[in-house]
């Protein structure tokens, strides 16, 4: 039996609509705030039940607050996603069809890349093969900026990758479209985009950066968990759980 929604649920949902995605700490904080505001009972370990209640009402609307893991910081996140299609229909009111074509291309470039990134040059070049509408360089750059601003992509030094929100929301789409190209993280078995790769050509397993940090912590000589070759990459620091919405 799902519970009825009250104003604390509605307020939480409104915050999710504004933020799009929040990390676990921030979700817990929001939960507390919403319950305080409407004087409802707030049980710290009941956040998932609270969200289930909202989700039961969102289901007929093809929306969902979905829990997912961020390969950037290794934290759990909650994102408000559209489950209507496995495609990118949620964005159709914000983006024109030819813009979505370019976004699909960008996803493809990122998925098939080794590094989980696509450079702006690669994306620009891919517009040449678009049949719908030729995009000018400035238009493409403007579109990429919008996709970053709307939290679909992230950008670092001209390299674009899929945002956590995008991965959580688009995972079913990406799994359907690129099943064969996808690689899983050897440690956590989630899809791996941005990660480190074993350099042994017969092995080539992928491990997320946060998973690398946790796995090799306190190990004096890092070795690949699959083939036992030396792990030649820099071991990142463990990400401190910081609550931030950005």
């Amino acid at each position: 039996m799902s519970q009825q929604m009250d104003n604390s649920h509605r307020k939480f949902l409104q915050s999710m609509m504004t933020n799009g995605i929040v990390d676990e700490q921030r979700a817990a904080m929001l939960y507390q705030q919403c319950c305080d505001t409407y004087k409802t009972k707030c049980l710290p370990d009941k956040l998932n039940d609270f969200i289930d209640t909202i989700n039961s009402k969102l289901q007929p609307l093809f929306m969902q607050i979905r829990k997912g893991w961020s390969e950037e910081d290794g934290q759990q996140h909650y994102a408000l996603v559209n489950v209507a299609e496995t495609d990118i229909s949620r964005m159709s009111s914000d983006y024109a069809d030819y813009e979505l074509v370019l976004f699909r291309k960008t996803i493809e470039l990122i998925v098939v890349s080794e590094t989980g990134q696509a450079s702006s040059t690669d994306i620009l070049n891919s517009t040449d093969t678009m049949t719908t509408k030729k995009l000018k360089k400035s238009e493409t750059e403007h579109l990429l900026n919008r996709l970053v601003r709307d939290k679909w992509l992230t950008e670092k030094r001209g390299e674009y990758s899929l945002s956590t929100r995008c991965v959580i929301e688009m995972e079913p789409y990406i799994r359907t479209m690129y099943q064969e190209q996808l690689k899983m993280c050897h440690i956590c078995h989630n899809i791996a985009f941005q990660c480190q790769i074993c350099e042994n050509p017969t092995c080539c397993i992928k491990i997320h950066n946060p998973c690398v940090a946790r796995y090799f912590k306190n190990k004096s000589e890092p070795r690949c968990p699959a083939c036992d070759d030396f792990w030649p990459h820099e071991i990142p620091e463990i990400h401190q759980p910081l609550s931030q919405s950005k």
């Binding site: 229909s89 890349s113 479209m177």
Partner: peptide
């Protein structure tokens, strides 16, 4: 870079 051509056919099926 190998690019597998996979045309997206799953346009919004509601249409």
């Amino acid at each position: 870079m190998s690019q597998r051509k996979r045309v997206s056919t799953s346009q919004s099926s509601s249409q």
